[in-house]
Computed example of a mutant assay.
Amino acid sequence: MFRQHQITEPDSERLAAFLPGLRAAVEAASQAGPIGPINTLLEQHPPLIRVDDHDGEGASHLHFAPNGEDAVSWLGRSCSAALAHVVCGDPAVTIGQCSAVDCERFYVDDSRNRTRRFCSNACASRTTVAAYRARRKATG
Score class of each variant (00 low, 15 high):
residue 52 D to N: 15
residue 36 G to T: 04
residue 7 I to M: 06
residue 119 C to K: 08
residue 86 V to M: 03
residue 24 A to N: 13
residue 88 C to G: 13
residue 54 H to C: 09
residue 77 R to Q: 13
residue 4 Q to M: 09
residue 72 V to T: 01
residue 131 A to R: 14
residue 110 D to Q: 12
residue 53 D to A: 11
residue 139 T to R: 14
residue 67 N to E: 02
residue 118 F to H: 07
residue 97 Q to H: 14
residue 84 A to L: 11
residue 114 R to S: 03
residue 53 D to H: 04
residue 8 T to P: 14
residue 69 E to T: 14
residue 71 A to W: 03
residue 27 E to N: 15
residue 21 G to A: 07
residue 74 W to G: 05
residue 12 S to H: 12
residue 7 I to N: 00
residue 116 R to T: 02
residue 39 N to R: 15
residue 131 A to E: 01
residue 25 A to D: 03
residue 4 Q to C: 13
residue 17 A to N: 14
residue 47 P to I: 06
residue 108 V to C: 13
residue 38 I to K: 04
residue 4 Q to G: 05
residue 81 A to G: 03
residue 118 F to W: 15
residue 53 D to T: 06
residue 108 V to F: 09
residue 117 R to V: 05
residue 1 M to R: 06
residue 116 R to N: 06
residue 131 A to I: 10
residue 65 A to G: 10
residue 72 V to C: 02
residue 124 A to H: 10
residue 90 D to L: 14
residue 115 T to M: 02
residue 74 W to T: 07
residue 10 P to R: 10
residue 40 T to D: 05
residue 32 A to L: 13
residue 62 L to C: 11
residue 66 P to K: 01
residue 55 D to C: 06
residue 110 D to I: 05
residue 74 W to L: 12
residue 57 E to Y: 12
residue 68 G to K: 13
residue 48 L to R: 07
residue 55 D to T: 11
residue 96 G to F: 07
residue 54 H to R: 09
residue 75 L to V: 15
residue 119 C to F: 09
residue 6 Q to T: 14
residue 34 P to C: 15
residue 51 V to H: 08
residue 78 S to F: 01
residue 21 G to I: 12
residue 24 A to M: 11
residue 67 N to S: 02
residue 68 G to V: 01
residue 91 P to R: 10
residue 52 D to T: 05
residue 129 V to Q: 10
residue 3 R to S: 12
residue 25 A to F: 12
residue 90 D to W: 04
residue 133 R to C: 07
residue 16 A to M: 06
residue 54 H to G: 00
residue 28 A to W: 03
residue 78 S to P: 03
residue 47 P to H: 01
residue 99 S to D: 05
residue 118 F to T: 09
residue 55 D to S: 09
residue 60 S to K: 11
residue 115 T to N: 02
residue 114 R to A: 13
residue 113 N to D: 10
residue 74 W to Y: 05
residue 46 P to Y: 08
residue 65 A to R: 14
residue 30 S to F: 15
residue 129 V to T: 04
residue 30 S to H: 01
residue 124 A to Q: 08
residue 84 A to P: 04
residue 12 S to F: 12
residue 121 N to V: 02
residue 59 A to D: 02
residue 137 K to A: 11
residue 74 W to A: 08
residue 51 V to M: 14
residue 57 E to N: 11
residue 91 P to C: 00
residue 128 T to E: 10
residue 59 A to M: 04
residue 31 Q to R: 03
residue 28 A to E: 09
residue 63 H to T: 11
residue 133 R to K: 09
residue 65 A to F: 04
residue 114 R to K: 13
residue 13 E to S: 12
residue 73 S to L: 10
residue 17 A to Q: 11
residue 82 A to D: 01
residue 107 Y to C: 14
residue 61 H to G: 15
residue 21 G to P: 07
residue 96 G to M: 01
residue 16 A to R: 08
residue 13 E to P: 11
residue 41 L to G: 08
residue 118 F to V: 09
residue 80 S to T: 08
residue 37 P to A: 05
residue 108 V to S: 07
residue 37 P to Y: 05
residue 134 A to L: 04
residue 14 R to M: 12
residue 81 A to F: 05
residue 117 R to F: 01
residue 23 R to W: 05
residue 107 Y to N: 03
